[in-house]
Write a protein that binds this DNA or RNA. Structure first.
Length: 542
RNA sequence: CGCGGGGUGGAGCAGUGGUAGCUUGUCGGGCUCAUAACCCGAAGGUCGCAGGUUCGAGUCCUGCCCCCGCUACCA
């Protein structure tokens, strides 16, 4: 049965470059989406830049451009970066859009009409030089608990204490360097506690894994604190309806960007977002990092429920990327930008490496340069592409590029490889791509053993017909492996499909063996890696 | 006592009660079609430490040690 899915990756913040960490999520999502499409499902992949907030306003100011010009430039760069990695969005939009403004207002109004918005006067630090209220991260001072200096306004990095900015000793504005003053302001809050029932009902539908559910239950056993959704002018964002100087906090309109992106895409295709977000038949899947779990599993389902939109079927949460076992760090030179990688290496092999490491858990994964070289050479080159390379050479040089038929023994091999398809499919479906890649490589080993047993290079000398059968079998094994791997390595597998003389193939075509075909000469699709090839990724001189 | 995740052969990882596995790396052999590839075989682990439960523990319980995240340049 054909399903309809709407899939999202978290919206990258329009205040920085895309790096290998973002790519973990977007590659994981893209593999999932491509796999769904391979199965024949209607699957739409929506993403956008998250374009609001103080940080962006300040960055634009620093660059001497308007926020609009700033976010446009960043968005263009983001789209170009993702494209290089074969991330195939159906639409990539921006939260700074008319659709998002309309939707944010209507969702806010729905919550307000429901009595879900509270107003409270709060005291907040204010930078008189800049004329800005200061978020915790823009205030520095001495930790009230341990006396460490130069700490942020929310937590101490030395003693791990958490506190409010007003408790900091000798606070200064990180923007002007001057002591801030306390100023009163009315803020708007989303009354999360009011929607506890919605959240627990949603959780009962099994949208998250058990470890995530445990973590959420921790939060849910306490009071759900009202969520501060307003910011005072000046702020780059949407004005809150009925106010003159209050803006939606960026995290209010960011997830709504998922719907707004859908709307923008749907309008261009003669539909509306309601066909997806108010239609029970559509499965909504969010892919996010573990750091933003809170927003997507508490506020977001509550906001959707109060405004009559469907809640997500699944929220898939992944861990972070470390480089050579350590947190990515600009000072260590391990903060690797997507476009810097793409200048050096083929994006598909990074996708494979991630797939070989990713699971459905929130565990962090490590990008280890040495391990990367070994894994790519061994799996992708040695096991997978090698089938094409060794057989392609024989077919091209000795057999005039001509295939024949498959014998009973060859059929047995192909059946063994095809027998793995359900397990591989399950692995893709459950995001346990590490298991999937392992199984696919086992299939590749079977094919290599078969080739070794049959020794077509010897056979070709006095029995070209028999050699031709072996080559036909081996290349059909390769064709099956290409279908298995197509969601992970779309570029590489497309090249191999071209060699095999077929257009891109889908899951349903697994058993359709090719026989009696004439092949173009085999050409290498990837180069083996050496450590010297990958070493420039990290800047070790710093 | 802040909370959470984790410690399995050199490296990266599977494995939640029943003779310790996979990939890679190392060593030896084979093959020579292929991008020093592929095939066969071997060595290499007291499963962080110490107790406990059990006929039996990597797997369950208790205590301890260490690493990582929760906080940053962030997803």
């Amino acid at each position: 049965m054909t399903k309809t899915l709407l899939v999202t990756s978290a919206l990258p913040y329009a205040n920085g470059d895309i790096h290998l960490g973002h790519l973990v999520e977007h590659v994981q999502t893209d593999i999932f989406v491509r796999f769904q499409k391979h199965l024949g499902h209607a699957c739409y992949y929506m993403c956008a830049d998250d374009a609001h907030g103080t940080a962006i306003m300040l960055s634009a100011e620093k660059d001497g451009v308007t926020p609009d010009a700033y976010i446009d430039a960043v968005k263009a760069q983001h789209i170009s970066d993702f494209k290089q990695f074969n991330i195939d969005y159906d639409h990539y939009y921006s939260t700074h859009s008319e659709e998002n403004r309309v939707l944010s207002e209507s969702i806010y109004n729905a919550a307000n009409d429901d009595g879900g918005i509270i107003k409270k006067d709060i005291q907040q630090y204010f930078d008189e030089d800049k004329g800005l209220f200061l978020a915790d991260r823009y205030i520095k001072g001495t930790c009230p608990k341990c006396g460490a200096t130069d700490q942020y306004g929310d937590a101490c990095e030395v003693c791990y204490a958490t506190y409010s900015a007003t408790e900091l000793v000798d606070p200064v504005s990180a923007l002007s360097g001057k002591p801030p003053v306390l100023k009163e302001s009315t803020h708007y809050f989303f009354d999360l506690e009011k929607y506890r029932e919605h959240i627990t009902q949603w959780l009962a539908t099994d949208p998250v894994s058990d470890p995530v559910k445990n973590k959420l239950n921790e939060w849910l056993t306490g009071d759900l604190k009202p969520w501060d959704i307003s910011r005072d002018a000046p702020y780059f964002g949407f004005k809150i309806p009925g106010t003159d100087d209050k803006y939606f906090y960026v995290w209010l309109d960011a997830p709504i960007g998922y719907i707004a992106t859908t709307e923008s895409w749907a309008t261009a295709n003669g539909k509306t977002c309601h066909a997806f977000w108010k239609n029970d038949a559509v499965e909504i899947h969010h892919f996010i990092g573990k750091d933003i779990m809170y927003f997507h599993t508490l506020f977001w389902p509550a906001m959707l429920a109060v405004s009559g939109f469907n809640q997500p079927k699944k929220v898939h949460i992944h861990g972070f990327l470390t480089v050579n076992g350590e947190k990515m760090s600009k000072s260590r030179g391990t903060f690797i930008l997507a476009r810097d990688y793409a200048k050096l290496l083929n994006p598909d092999i990074l996708r494979y490496y991630y797939a070989a490491k990713l699971s459905s858990s929130m565990d962090d994964i490590d990008f280890n340069l040495e391990d990367f070289v070994q894994r790519i050479n061994s799996d992708v080159l040695g096991k997978f592409i090698n089938i094409g390379s060794r057989i392609g050479a024989i077919v091209t040089k000795k057999l005039d590029g001509q295939l024949s038929t498959i014998d009973a023994e060859g059929l047995a091999l192909l059946d063994d490889i095809l027998a793995m398809s359900d397990a591989i499919s399950d692995a893709y479906q459950s995001l346990d791509t590490h298991k999937g890649m392992r199984m696919i490589m086992q299939c590749a080993e079977l094919a290599n053993k078969y080739i070794d047993d049959k020794a077509p290079w010897a056979l070709v000398k006095d029995n070209a017909d028999a050699a031709r059968v072996v080559c036909t079998v081996a290349l059909n094994a390769l064709r099956i492996l290409c279908i298995y791997l197509a969601p992970v390595m779309p570029g590489v597998t497309q090249q191999l499909f071209s060699f095999l003389g077929v257009s891109s193939q889908h899951w349903a075509q697994l058993p359709q063996h090719i026989t009696n075909a004439t092949l173009a000469p085999y050409e290498h699709v990837l180069k083996r890696l050496t450590l010297d090839d990958v070493a420039p990724l990290v800047n070790t001189t710093q």
